[in-house]
């Protein structure tokens, strides 16, 4: 019985391998950009003013995708909070008390790592990086905060407020683009400025900072929900 099952699995895997091998046989590397990418490369720096073309694609040309993605992350954090709801209402953490070294190192490191995260998402239109990366670094700061300093004092209130306000501002800036410029999430509601300076590219730095705050708050909410255990333990 077990041999039969394993042989069926092997046949299935062999079929999959054959299919992927055919895909690889037809694959040929490219040496020119296609039309869409050529449009982004030629018109993108003048239309959006952002030096990082990935940022201009993510925030302006395909900004609606980003809005949907942030919504998916919000739904994930809400569903995790719903599924892990404790029965008797009390929440406590599963961690032991942290040592003196941990607390001192965390007090030294948390401001620096937060500063790096903020730098990454403010400079998202000039250098590699942006809202998602900066938000992830803010969330890893939150992990460090959670395992070192305050084990029971961190509330949902701050995270919920940050997440709600940044999401609301994101949508409001998008609607302002409809009123003042060409369409939803258009970045020309502010002037594009000098190419390559910090205050350039219209609304892209503002939108990417809001995305960074929202992603950081959502990932932190997921980690906070997973950190708490049911109250009847211990």
């Amino acid at each position: 019985m077990k041999i039969l099952k394993n042989s069926i699995l092997l046949v299935l895997l062999g079929f999959m391998t054959w299919m992927l091998f055919n895909l690889y046989k037809d694959y040929d590397s490219r040496d020119t950009l296609n039309d869409t990418a050529r449009y982004y490369a030629e018109k993108g720096p003048d239309e959006t003013g952002a030096a990082n073309l990935v940022t201009s694609v993510v925030v302006t040309y395909r900004g609606l995708d980003t809005l949907g993605e942030v919504t998916i992350l919000f739904l994930v954090s809400a569903i995790i909070g719903l599924l892990l709801k404790t029965e008797n209402g009390t929440r406590k953490t599963a961690m032991r008390a942290s040592s003196e070294f941990m607390i001192t190192a965390a007090k030294l490191l948390i401001p620096m790592i937060s500063l790096i995260g903020v730098y990454i998402f403010v400079n998202g239109h000039l250098t590699p990086g942006g809202g998602f990366q900066g938000g992830a670094i803010l969330a890893s700061t939150f992990i460090l905060l959670l395992i070192s300093i305050s084990r029971n004092k961190i509330g949902h209130k701050v995270l919920e407020l940050t997440e709600a306000l940044s999401g609301l501002s994101f949508v409001l800036i998008g609607i302002l683009g409809v009123i003042l410029a060409a369409g939803f999430l258009d970045n020309k509601i502010l002037g594009t400025g000098t190419f390559g300076s910090l205050l350039s590219a219209g609304a892209i730095p503002i939108i990417y900072s809001l995305i960074g705050l929202k992603v950081g708050a959502e990932l932190s909410t997921i980690i906070l929900e997973l950190n708490q255990v049911q109250g009847k333990e211990d």
Binding site: T55, I120, P128, G129, G130, F132, Q133, A136, I137, S140
Partner: peptide, 8 residues
Amino acid sequence: DVAITEAS
């Protein structure tokens, strides 16, 4: 960009 995202 993708390298920073994947690493973090």
